[in-house]
Every structure is written in C-alpha cells, then in structure tokens.
Design a protein around this nucleic acid. Structure first.
Lengths: 257, 257
DNA sequence: CGTTCAGTTGACCATGATCAAGAGTGGTGG
DNA sequence: CCACCACTCTTGATCATGGTCAACTGAACG
C-alpha cells in the first residue's frame, strides 16, 4: 500500500521525491498500535506529539459535563491529529480509537525538522488543517439542518470520498467500521434512530451496509438524498489552478517554508 | 478604542511595538463600509483579500441546495475572515453582514509582506485560526447535543466572552445585534422556538435581552444552564506557559516567520 | 403616520427520543 | 467443539421537543 499521507497531500501539492521519502520516513519511525476503544489522547492533556493514522479509524470527540458525548470528526489513514501541538497548549477534545489503530507518533523535534526543511510538506499540512476546518463547518450544517436519513447519507458520502482520496475504496465499496452507536455519536441521533434511518436508506437501495462494509451502488443518488455537495472537501484541485500554485511558490520563497 | 485585533492577538502572543504599529496600519489602510444584510463574499467566489472586522457583526454561513441556511460562526471586531486566501482556491462558505460593517481589506501583497516581516503576528494568526476551528467543534456539540435553551445560553456565553476579550463589554452587558432569526440560523432552531426559549431564559432571570443589548446578571448561572465550559476558547493563556513560549520562539527562529 | 420588520402568541403536528425486550453475531474458555 | 457472554442490531410502544402555519403586536424609520 502506498503511503496514505502522501496520497492525501498530493491531492493538493506537487511533492518532490525528497518530500515523498521524508513522508515515508515519518510514517515508518516510531509507530504504535492502539487497541480498539482506547483513547489516544484526552481533552485537557498537553499534546506531546502529532499522530498520523496509518491503519484503522479513530474519532475526535468532546464530552459534556453530564456525560453526553459528540464526535466532531472521524480520522482515517493519512489523517494527522492535529497541529495543535505547536500553537495551543491543551487538547480541547479527545481522540479515541474505533478500531485497532496503527499510528506514527511524530515528536516536536522531528516535526520541527520537517517543517524547517520541507516547504512543500509544510504548505500541504496547513492545507489539510484548513480542509478539516471546512469539514467541521459541514458537520455543523449536517447536525443542524438535515433530517436523520440525510445526515447519515451525508456521512456515508463524505467518508467514502475521503477514503477514496487515499486509495482505500474498492469500486463501490469501502470498509466502514463505526457501529450504529458510533454513527449516532457523530450525527447527534440515538442509536435506535440511526438503525431505523439506515433501514430506510437500505429500503430505498441507496446503501448496502453489512459486516463493517459499506457499498454505495449509486453515489449520485445517495448524494442527492443527503443534499451532499463535495466542494467542501476541496479534493482534486491539483493542477487546475496554476495561478494559485505560482502564488504559493512565491510564498514559499518567502517565509512559509 | 484600542485596536481590537491587537487585543485579540495579545490574548496569545507578546507583541512588540513594531508589531502593534503594523497592526494599526493594517486596520487603517483600505477600510470599507458594508450596509447591513449585504454579503461580503459568497460561497464559490475566489477569495481576493482577507477581511478584518473593525466594527459591527458578521456571520459565516453555508446554504443548502433547498434554500436552508446555517450560520457556522459569527465574526466580531478583531476577527479575521479567513486565511483561506493563501491555501484554498474557493470560498466554501459565505460571509454576510448582520449590522452595518466597517472592515479593513487586506490584499495578498500586503498580507504577504506582514507574514514575511512580522513573525509574532504570523504565529498569532495561526493561533486565531486554530481557536476558530475549536469554536467550530463546539458549535457541532451545541447543535447536536444541547436543548434549545441550552444552545442559546451557550451562544450568549460564548459571544459575551469573545467580546470581552476585545474590550467590547461594559460590566455585565454587551451589544448583541443578531435578531431572533439570526440566532435561529446559528442554533439550528426556528425563530419561533428561539423566541420561546429566550422567554424561558428571561423567566429564570438568566439573561436580559432588549434593544440589541444583552445583559448577563449571573454569568456562572448562565454557563451552568448552557453546559458552557470556556476552555475551548483558549483565552487568557498568555504568560501561563513559558515553556511553550520558548518553544514558539525557537519555531520563529526557524521557519514560521 | 404609515410601512416594514422584529418580536410574540396559539393550535396543531412530526421527527426523533426514551424505555424495554428480543435476535443475531463473534469471541472466549471449559 | 460447544456453551456462554458480550455486544451490536432490531423491533415495538409511548412520549416530548421543537417545527409549522397563521395571526397579531410593537417598535423604528422615513
């Protein structure tokens, strides 16, 4: 399997061979395995390192004082959690493993060295940061405006496309390990209602979901049913905006890297 | 009035006199006035400049294909909208004026010059970016998990503290220009239900809201009623974490500025 | 002084929550 | 290999929060 991080970042930036080698090194050094349902890091902790997901699914979540919990994003291979390390002093949310997880732990020093020596990578990391902010915005819209079935359809579309961009789909299918309870945490619904809503989607033949495997027979139909517009993912931009790339190049010659 | 942007950024970074002068220049050059209810920039547009709010309130919002709209954040004096300019090629959301707005328009060249020459400012801008991402996370929690009254109480707490951090509160009060319809757009409720929920808060003497003026007689009580925990705003951190500041300094000597 | 827009109130309705129980599935140890 | 346990999924009945539609009031501004 090619490096998922490389694939993600190349969605946006042209990377040199040296960049790719460095990313491969990052992904290889200091890997850890986390059992399912264990927390990687908790709200209030001081971030020690940046985690790169190599295999498995995780979730970013916040807890309320009365015990309610809300997942604010999923993390899949190629995702970095997060750049907070360098700017904020405490985690404002937790990161938990959904499946067994393989992560690369990137310490301050290593990360600093990369940021110093690899300008393309640095720019790409900030791009990833802004895209994930855009995803947050879409999740606000999702839970605030869409009906239960729409929310779930939307989530399926998003995760499928995010996995596709790192090469983890197979035709119309992909792994989908979150339980119905996990989906409930992410969509602001109860597990019972998630169950009924998924059955409605199944009845309309919009999704097949069994044994942690998601199949979307007609992506356009599912997108329509979830009022899904993929623009917010900012995928596939590369090469279409040479003007912007020239501009970014000039930034790099300056201070960004 | 002292420069709101300076106050915001000093929440986090130590700025030199030169930094402050530069921020004052930024806020002074190329200002524009926008009438209420007009869009500053729309979803799909190519961002031309960064906007700095000098006076008034704006909102960031997304529209669904069927006409529904969701506000994903408010912007008040001292807020920058957003750094997308340098990384993403299209706006994934719109920014609309709630009140009459005074903004400074900062073009690419000017912005680039600042980022090149003022490392403290650059770091502080990224801090602002990450804090606003954290605010997005909290809004997801807000609309997904809290009841109508809780959501509105939470919004009041957040906006009051954000205004306080730029010196725009007066004792227990602050301006609060959004209409009940605007609050509905931000909380995923209808205007009718916002009305009834505010009445409930009033009946419990948690807020006084009249003529665009919000008074919070007992902030702790309001926070409790909205399950509000201010940590996610990352305010008032400055000086408490000298270790982190040393680290940031080393970053600045490297590549971040 | 009238027009417009925000705020308010009432009656009724629908989406999704809650509570409870049962069925399917997978993993573990005897 | 089978029995048991835990967890996820499924189904049903009832309830409550908040939505919808419609009318009316009050304040602000030209």
């Amino acid at each position: 399997m090619p490096n998922a991080l490389t694939r993600r970042l190349e969605e946006y930036t042209v990377l040199t061979d040296a960049d790719r080698d460095e990313l491969a090194r990052l992904a290889a050094q200091s890997t850890r395995t986390i059992p399912p349902r264990r927390d990687l890091i908790r709200e209030g902790d001081a971030p020690r390192s940046v985690y790169l997901i190599l295999e498995g699914w995780a979730c970013h979540y916040r807890s309320l004082s009365d015990g309610r919990r809300q997942t604010v994003d999923f993390a899949v291979p190629g995702d970095l959690c997060d750049l907070n390390l360098f700017i904020l002093d405490r985690m404002d949310h937790s990161i938990g493993a959904i499946t067994k997880l393989k992560v690369a732990e990137i310490g301050r020093d290593v990360f600093h060295r990369v940021v110093t020596n690899y300008p393309n990578i640095t720019t790409a990391l900030w791009w990833q940061e802004l895209v994930s902010k855009s995803i947050h915005r879409e999740w606000i819209v999702n839970v605030a405006q869409r009906s239960a079935s729409e929310r779930i359809a939307h989530l399926f579309c998003e995760m499928f496309l995010r996995l596709e961009s790192v090469g983890l789909t197979d035709g119309f299918s992909c792994d989908f390990p979150p339980t119905q309870g996990d989906i409930a945490d992410a969509t602001g619904l109860t597990a019972v209602h998630v169950n009924r809503s998924i059955q409605a989607l199944r009845a309309r033949e919009l999704v097949i979901l069994e044994r942690q495997k998601l199949t979307i027979p007609d992506m356009m139909a599912l997108q329509a049913s979830g009022l899904f517009n993929p623009d917010y993912l900012h995928h596939g931009r590369l090469g279409r905006h040479t003007d912007r790339h020239r501009h970014l190049q000039s930034l790099r010659d300056g201070t960004y890297g």
